[in-house]
Nucleic acid binder design. Structure first.
Lengths: 243, 243
DNA sequence: AAGTTCTAATTGGTAATCAATTTTAATCTT
DNA sequence: AAGATTAAAATTGATTACCAATTAGAACTT
């Protein structure tokens, strides 16, 4: 599986070095010829890699001078380490309002699709997909592309941020019937076109999630403390001396 | 000002042709050598341009076969034509909740910065910048990076979507004292740590904006109708015959 | 010390060449 | 004639070598 073009591997290596701080923001990269020798590729290949980094706005090329690392500090604030708590709180707020809106604007066909998603949540293998579908139907039912975009972006964080994925992993699997119960409440409220009930039901759903996240993280924190304590205990223990 | 590297001009031309539909999604671009001749540059330069397009995910390169245009239809759904109404509604919902949260979590230093932004709104040239700063301080005061991200993304739409820019242009300039009044109400509510008042004040602010947008678009629609009517009248008029 | 000039380093860009891969067409086999 | 095999053509992948344009810094002059 080495069919990828060479410059991509150079891009990855250089980007890793930039992220690692070996080439800090504002600093100059080694000359193209040096890089070519260092990575054992030709100069055009290095040029291609630099162009890729330039398109990604990681570096800036100054003719006759060199390649300089872009100051990327604030620019990538969109991916500034979002925790599972933050994400869930944000989702609670946005999706609750979306549900309230959707209760007023949803169509019959969407309502039946929502029911279908709810039913699909019962089967274990479809559950996660159905969950996502459920929320997406509601977001689209708002007839507001800005809201759809916002919720989509939050889902992107949900899918891409490692710490979020890890945190949700522990929580999602447990309490399936509880999850279905909450989604049913959301569905019922929307079906009744009751905006404030829909908002409340959605809030309730996410509240439970946040609490579950809290408990899980508490449990993990306790475990961590215990582990460290054990380590320390091992360090200072004198039991091995008396054995 | 032609210091830009050559491949960028090629990138622009090719991207324009792709957008225009000359090279539809899935179709193959001409061979590198043909492109090199067509744009009167060398083959490496064409390669660089293609790499730039590849990094942007506009094309896909298949070794020995050719360069194919990526199907970009659904991928860019995040920017699926958001109207000023949609954006404002979404901002109303999200920023109102942010204000409610911020009322509980804001610090004194942020509060004074908020006051500063409020004062700066009085001077005409700083007004827009101060407005943006005002809302950003609130979003950051939530201590929730997911919310900050969501609001930032909505601001991106605000700044980049042409139809949104045009719609806001007509509205923002008028009613400056009204705008300050609304922002003062928001500030007061947050300063009092009154979450529901902050939410309400923010809602009120955006409601006025939506109404203003409505009026402006109505006025424009009327104008458009009148223009078209005049055109038609001119077309069918017999006045020029009797003159 | 300040400004100027020159030189070396660096990126910008091209041409020519060969390798690897894919597509296409021709050829062979059944 | 249909299908499989093979060969050729087309295309991208990558390198070497070369020269031009720009920049940074050293050396020089005043």
């Amino acid at each position: 599986m080495k069919k990828r073009r060479r410059f991509w591997t150079v891009v990855e290596k250089l980007e890793a070095l930039i992220d690692k701080g070996v080439y800090p923001a504002g600093s100059r990269l080694p000359a193209e010829r040096e890089l070519a020798e260092a990575y054992d590729v030709s100069r055009p290949t290095i040029r291609e890699a630099i162009i890729a980094l330039e398109v990604r706005e990681r570096v800036e090329v100054k003719t006759g001078s060199g390649v300089y690392v872009t100051d990327f500090a604030g620019s990538d604030s969109s991916l500034k380490s979002i925790s599972a708590f933050e994400l869930t709180q944000a989702r609670a707020l946005v999706e609750a309002e979306a549900a309230a809106l959707a209760a007023a604007t949803i169509r019959e066909t969407e309502l039946s699709a929502l029911k279908q998603a709810l039913d699909d949540m019962s089967s274990a293998e479809k559950a996660d997909e159905a969950d996502q579908r459920f929320h997406e139907i509601i977001s689209r039912a708002t007839r507001n592309n800005a809201i759809v975009m916002s919720i989509n972006n939050l889902w992107k964080v949900r899918r891409n941020e490692p710490q979020v994925i890890a945190a949700y992993k522990d929580v999602c699997s447990q309490g399936i019937e509880q999850r279905i119960k909450e989604h049913t409440a959301i569905y019922d409220a929307i079906a009744k076109r009751d905006s404030s009930a829909a908002r409340k039901a959605m809030h309730n759903h996410f509240n439970r999630l946040i609490n579950a996240l809290f408990e899980a993280s508490e449990a993990k924190a306790l475990e961590e403390i215990k582990r460290k304590t054990d380590e320390t205990r091992g360090l200072y223990s004198i039991s091995h001396l008396t054995k």
